[in-house]
Design a protein around this nucleic acid. Structure first.
Lengths: 110, 110
DNA sequence: ACTATATTTGACAAATAATGTCAAGTGAAT
DNA sequence: ATTCACTTGACATTATTTGTCAAATATAGT
């Protein structure tokens, strides 16, 4: 039933497998991103959160759709933040409504 | 169409209206919570995030269902964090899947 | 096993953000 | 004008995040 999610890739796994499939070393990618390779290693290992700029650079050099990476990044961050709460799922449903509302309001301002 | 959300109350509004309907002053509630009343004022104004302990105390003294407050709190935090992203809604859908997965895995560990 | 190279890890400092405290400020009611 | 409730901003303190570096570990070739 939940088996479809069992092998859900983490952001780090996506990044690492893509980097390796392109034959790039940590230092190549880190140099392009202008960060220490230790940080990139930790991002791949999931011990460190990438910044948005990191995400942008990674999507460029690894040729991964930026939205795909960003969705991965945001969803991991959110899930990690709230998973311990019993009402986590309900909060997400309400959050979706709020996001839609905020977006509509932003539209009107343009 | 989105009018049902138009008057969606914020956490601060819920807290303030409930406090006032109970005839409590900021300093009463703040004393019970063991925080400076300036902080409580900012929480009601939305300029300050309450801690989980704050939420617990508030739900007690204002007699608001703790889950209702927590959902309000978490959903606001999440929506605020990601609303600027185009892929915010998609991220929330993925986050829900991840939360469910994490919860199932936690069950198995018990 | 030795070497060279790639990756991972931990310690530490620096920068940034969250939090608490306080006093001055605003506004409404008397 | 005084009082009371609330709000705001400045400031210090504390916690968290971030960057840097070197040592440790793993991996592959010989």
């Amino acid at each position: 039933m939940s088996s479809e999610f069992y092998h859900m890739e983490t952001l780090g796994q996506i990044l690492k497998s893509k980097r390796e499939s392109k034959g790039l070393l940590l230092r190549h990618v880190a140099a392009y991103m202008d960060i220490d390779q230790a940080i990139l290693s930790k991002i791949e290992k999931g011990c460190r959160k990438p910044s948005k700029e990191n995400i942008n650079k990674l999507s460029e050099i690894l040729e991964i759709d930026r939205d795909k990476l960003m969705i991965q990044f945001l969803s991991e961050k959110i899930a990690y933040e709230i998973a311990e709460e019993d009402c986590a799922s309900e909060a997400l449903v309400v959050a979706e409504k709020k996001v839609k509302l905020i977006k509509e309001q932003n539209k009107k301002l343009i």
